[in-house]
Amino acid sequence: SEEELIEKAEKLRKEFEFIWNGIRFIIRENADEIRRFEELLKE
């Protein structure tokens, strides 16, 4: 039914948001290391 689809979509959206926030947190935490690594690659 349509309601089930909406519920599934909402659940997926929440899971995606949770994963995305996790990725963003990891990137933020490691931003300095990532930048340093990029500098090494440029040399």
Rank of each mutant, 00 (worst) to 15 (best):
E2A: 11
R36Q: 07
I34Q: 01
E17G: 03
A9D: 04
N21K: 10
E15K: 13
K14R: 08
E4C: 14
A31R: 07
E43P: 04
E10N: 05
R28T: 08
A31Y: 09
E15P: 06
R13K: 09
F37D: 00
R24M: 13
K14D: 07
I26W: 12
R13F: 13
R24P: 01
G22K: 10
R35M: 09
E33Q: 11
R13W: 15
I26E: 04
E10T: 09
L12K: 04
I23A: 00
E2V: 13
E7V: 08
W20L: 13
R36P: 03
I23G: 02
E33K: 10
A31S: 05
I23W: 02
I6K: 08
A9L: 14
E2M: 14
E17H: 04
R13C: 13
L40C: 13
I27N: 00
F37L: 08
E2W: 14
N21E: 10
I23C: 15
G22E: 10
E43Q: 11
F37H: 02
L41V: 04
E10M: 05
L12D: 02
R24F: 14
K11Q: 12
E33S: 12
E17V: 07
I26T: 00
I6C: 15
A31H: 04
R13T: 07
K42N: 04
K8D: 07
I6Y: 05
E33G: 05
I6E: 08
A31T: 11
L41R: 01
E17C: 14
L12H: 04
A9Q: 04
L5A: 09
L41I: 09
F16A: 01
F18G: 01
G22F: 15
N30L: 15
E39Q: 10
N21V: 13
E43F: 12
E7S: 11
I27V: 03
K8Y: 12
L12A: 04
I19D: 00
E39H: 06
E4P: 05
E7T: 08
E43G: 09
G22Q: 12
A9S: 04
E39P: 00
E17F: 03
W20H: 00
K42D: 03
L40W: 12
E39T: 10
F25R: 09
K42M: 09
A9N: 06
R35T: 05
R35L: 10
I19Y: 05
F16T: 01
D32I: 05
A31L: 09
S1G: 05
G22R: 10
K11C: 15
F16D: 01
G22W: 15
R24I: 14
I23N: 02
K8H: 07
F25Y: 12
A31P: 02
F16Q: 01
W20R: 00
L12F: 06
A31D: 02
E3S: 11
A9C: 15
W20N: 00
E29P: 08
R28V: 06
S1Q: 09
I19H: 05
R35N: 02
F16K: 01
L41F: 12
S1Y: 07
E33W: 15
N30Y: 15
R13N: 06
G22Y: 15
I34A: 02
E38P: 04
L41H: 01
K14S: 08
R28F: 10
D32W: 09
E17N: 03
E4F: 11
N30A: 14
R24G: 12
K8W: 14
E29V: 13
I19R: 00
R28M: 12
L12C: 14
R35P: 02
L12I: 06
G22T: 14
E29W: 14
E10I: 08
I19T: 01
I6H: 13
L12E: 03
E38D: 06
G22V: 15
E4M: 08
F18H: 04
E4A: 13
F18Q: 02
E10A: 05
E10L: 08
E39N: 04
I34S: 01
R13S: 05
E38C: 15
E29N: 07
E15M: 15
D32P: 09
R35Q: 05
K11D: 11
I34C: 13
K8G: 06
R13Y: 12
R36M: 09
K8M: 13
I6R: 10
K14T: 12
E17R: 05
N21L: 14
R36E: 03
E3R: 07
L5F: 09
I27K: 00
E15F: 15
K11G: 10
F18S: 03
L40F: 05
L12P: 03
R36C: 13
E38W: 14
K42Q: 06
F18D: 02
E4W: 14
F16N: 00
L12R: 01
K11Y: 07
